[in-house]
């Protein structure tokens, strides 16, 4: 889940229009960019889709860290393809956000100066090759939990972007699990590395879904608008139930002494992550916040001459073509 703590905006609009809008959503109609929509719907979506897009882009950094050090040429090619996909996912989402009347450069600038956030998970470092396995398996796994239902979201461009993303995302999770299987069946040192990666990524992955929001008004509004399809707790529970057997298959131990199967609810009971750590990371005090934003700012600044140069070249060619006609 790449969008966390999105607060929905209240709408002070004509109640009749609002009711008609809600009726369209309730009937399962898609809202398209040129349709009337409440300002709150528009603003909340820009924030949510924008944060999701930023997460895809910043999410390239922890994995990019290992491209040059992948253990084989095949793993390197696969990791490159995955990181390239993340760039593509960011682009699909930026385009969806742009249909709501915000420009790409505005979105980028809001990421770079900290006005917009990205998922807390990407502020953790990737220390060993096993982390590439854990990220694909757990982080992409958690993202899929949220993205699959979002394919049915009410905003047409967002829904279409999600459909494209989901088609590609399952490759990401499987390649991660494939790395974990190889490590878990490897030498003692490799098994230890795999266990260590699980230990470090388990709770940050649970945090991806955000704190419990079952009593939140923002969450209720977003769910009525169908831009949020499930509560954070529902998705977290689903993720744990799916992931624990996968860890068992690997012969790895989920780092939670309270993890037990609850027959009555048909799911696992598990420990909550440390929410004070989550809020610190969101505030900018995670292990890699500074490094991540510095990397994005550097890429943006270093690329300025290319962006401007290509525009100047295009203008020159257009002028030459006009002169020749």
């Amino acid at each position: 889940m790449y969008a966390q703590m999105i607060k929905s905006e209240a709408s002070a609009e004509d109640p009749e229009k609002l009711a008609a809008f809600q009726a369209r959503i309730d009937a399962g109609e898609k809202i398209e960019p040129k349709d009337w929509m409440p300002e709150g719907y528009r603003k909340t979506l820009i924030r949510q889709i924008g944060q999701h897009a930023h997460s895809e882009i910043v999410g390239q950094l922890p994995e990019g860290n290992w491209i040059t050090r992948a253990p084989t040429l095949e793993r390197k090619a696969i990791l490159l393809a995955k990181v390239q996909d993340e760039a593509g996912h960011g682009l699909y989402l930026y385009c969806a956000a742009e249909t709501l009347g915000v420009s790409r450069d505005e979105l980028t600038e809001m990421l770079l100066d900290g006005r917009m956030k990205y998922s807390s998970i990407f502020n953790y470092p990737t220390l060993t090759w096993a982390d590439m396995g854990a990220v694909g398996w757990l982080v992409d796994g958690a993202a899929i939990m949220n993205q699959v239902p979002l394919q049915r979201t009410s905003f047409g461009p967002y829904s279409r972007a999600m459909i494209r993303i989901c088609k590609e995302e399952s490759f990401h999770q499987r390649q991660g699990y494939d790395i974990m299987m190889k490590m878990a069946r490897g030498t003692d040192a490799q098994r230890k590395m795999a266990q260590d990666a699980l230990n470090r990524f388990w709770y940050p992955s649970l945090m991806m879904f955000g704190p419990s929001d079952k009593d939140s008004v923002h969450s209720a509004q977003s769910m009525a608008w169908k831009i949020k399809m499930n509560t954070n707790d529902e998705l977290r529970q689903k993720f744990v139930d799916q992931t624990v057997p996968q860890a068992e298959y690997l012969g790895l131990t989920v780092p939670d002494p309270n993890l037990t199967w609850n027959e009555e609810k048909g799911g696992y009971d598990f420990s909550e992550p440390d929410w004070s750590e989550f809020f610190e990371v969101i505030k900018g005090n995670g292990p890699c916040n500074t490094e991540r934003l510095e990397a994005r700012n550097k890429a943006w600044d270093d690329g300025a001459w290319v962006r401007e140069g290509l525009m100047a070249h295009a203008a020159k060619k257009r002028a030459a073509k006009l002169a020749a006609e």
Binding site: Y92, A314, R318
Partner: peptide, 12 residues
């Protein structure tokens, strides 16, 4: 139609 993107000119 599959989506959109930004580019300086048609070739790019």
């Amino acid at each position: 139609h599959v989506g959109s993107l930004h580019a300086p000119d048609a070739e790019m």
